[in-house]
Simulated scan of single mutants.
Amino acid sequence: MPATSKAQQKAAGAALSAKRGETRPSELKGASRDMYESMSEEELDDLASTPREDLPDRASDD
């Protein structure tokens, strides 16, 4: 499942870093904290590895 925005991709990267023990989970905020708690490392890796060039900064509410 690819990320739908640069913000989502960045949040997934932060959550993935915490899952791998590279950063502390207590440093996560907002969406990245929710992702850390509810998604597997594999799911986070999928989102975080989405190429950024064609993504909007934020997802639309549509």
Rank of each mutant, 00 (worst) to 15 (best):
D61P: 00
Q9F: 03
E22C: 03
P25H: 07
S40C: 11
P56E: 11
D57L: 03
D61L: 13
A12W: 00
A14Y: 01
K10N: 08
M1K: 15
M35Q: 06
S60Y: 07
E41Q: 12
S49W: 04
K19H: 13
K19A: 07
E27Q: 14
G30A: 14
D46H: 15
P51K: 10
L16T: 03
G13R: 05
S5E: 11
R52P: 01
D62T: 10
K19W: 06
L47W: 00
K29Y: 11
D62S: 09
S49H: 13
S32L: 03
R33L: 13
E37Y: 03
A11Q: 00
D45P: 01
A7R: 07
A18L: 02
T50H: 06
D62I: 12
T50S: 09
T50Q: 07
Q8L: 11
S32A: 15
D46Q: 15
A7N: 06
L47A: 04
M1N: 09
Q9D: 03
D46G: 12
A3I: 03
Y36R: 02
S17R: 12
S26T: 15
A18S: 09
K10L: 08
S60D: 14
L47R: 00
R20G: 09
A7I: 02
S5W: 04
S49Y: 05
A48M: 03
R58G: 07
L44V: 06
A15Q: 03
S40L: 10
S5C: 11
G21Q: 13
Q9W: 05
G13H: 00
A15L: 02
A14M: 14
